[in-house]
Design a protein around this nucleic acid. Sequence first.
DNA 1: GAGATGACATTCG
DNA 2: GCGAATGCCATCT
Length: 115
Amino acid sequence: MSAYEDIYRVTRRIPRGKVATYGQIAYLSGRERQARLVGYALHRVDLAGEEVPWQRVVNARGEISYSPFRRGSDYLQRALLEEEGIVFDGAGKIDLRKYQWQAEEYTREDIRSCF
DNA sequence: GAGATGACATTCG
DNA sequence: GCGAATGCCATCT
């Protein structure tokens, strides 16, 4: 019941105009290899009545992960992110190199390798 | 309690 | 870049 508490906490820490990947959230919440639980947790956010900016959480591809039964639609979620300054390319993807949230505790080699 | 499922990530071919 | 296979664990049936 509270295994998601950390996940919610981390998700709320995502600053505006930034996005985070499931693996990242999982890592910060102490569950690096349990990205599935992150997605599962976010899926239950609405059911739990918690207000979490789950829209800022995207998959490793930089695409939005949305479920068909979210509030409104996929279109709305993309609009929300665009509101925050996130820019989507033609394929509806996000440039993680620019918009991925870089937490202080989060220093992965592949990210650094990107530079 | 056991088996299947899942808003995924990562690695290998 | 893409598809298949593997791993991980809470929730659902």
